[in-house]
């Protein structure tokens, strides 16, 4: 039950972008085209899932037994940064086109607060290794869903008469607000079942 609750929670009910304000910079920055949004989604899914797994191992076997909880922030950010490096090297070799398209946003996954955010949430919920990994995956899937939907909407804007002064962040934020209004419909979904 908890497994389903985590997946639904991450993807729909507590969607990172729409409900938790996490990962907004790349959400707005890389959503102009569906292709780049998909590429970024892939990178985020990989990094968030792996980061969740590794940080929870680190938490349970190193930080907690040694009482080093106060080093968590530093330890986590270093782990995440090295993972991003890994993805970057991999992409540069395997998918140079995509690597070019993602531009500066790839190294910026490090500062995608959704990644560090999910690992911090894992600690707050005191999830074990499996549930942490799952939570990372679910959160990343939710983030990807959000950016893919938004990229679809934004691609249409190119064909439309969008007011120039509002393009970019102002309209992106208003649209995110409208999308998040729609996602409010999922609030308390299955609450009766999971309790």
């Amino acid at each position: 039950m908890e497994i389903i609750a985590i997946i639904l929670g991450g993807v729909l009910i507590n969607n990172f972008v729409f409900m938790q304000y996490l990962g907004l910079c790349p959400f707005v920055g890389v959503s102009r085209q569906l292709e780049t949004a998909l590429g970024m989604s892939g990178a985020v899914i990989f990094v968030m899932t792996m980061a969740s797994a590794v940080t929870s191992v680190l938490e349970i076997y190193v930080l907690a037994p040694l009482g080093l909880g106060y080093l968590r922030t530093i330890a986590y950010i270093l782990v995440i940064a090295s993972f991003v490096q890994l993805v970057e090297i991999f992409m540069k070799k395997a998918a140079p086109g995509l690597y070019k398209a993602l531009g500066i946003y790839l190294p910026l996954i490090t500062t995608n607060c959704a990644v560090l955010g999910v690992t911090m949430l894992n600690v707050r919920h005191s999830y074990g290794i499996f549930l942490s990994t799952l939570n990372g995956l679910a959160g990343a899937l939710g983030w990807s869903l959000a950016i893919i939907i938004f990229a679809g909407i934004r691609e249409r804007w190119r064909l439309m008469d969008i007011p120039k002064t509002l393009e970019g962040f102002p309209l992106a934020l208003v649209s995110t607000g409208l999308m998040s209004l729609a996602f409010l419909g999922f609030q308390n979904l299955f609450k009766a079942v999971f309790r």
Binding site: F18, M19, Q20, L166, P170, L171, L173, G177, L178, S180
Partner: peptide, 22 residues
């Protein structure tokens, strides 16, 4: 106080400032 309100509020604020600056 909810996320939709926050997004729309900040978006509108930016829109107004953009228009004024332009």
């Amino acid at each position: 106080l909810t996320p939709p309100g926050g997004f729309i509020c900040l978006g509108l604020l930016m829109a107004v400032l953009n228009v004024l600056l332009a």
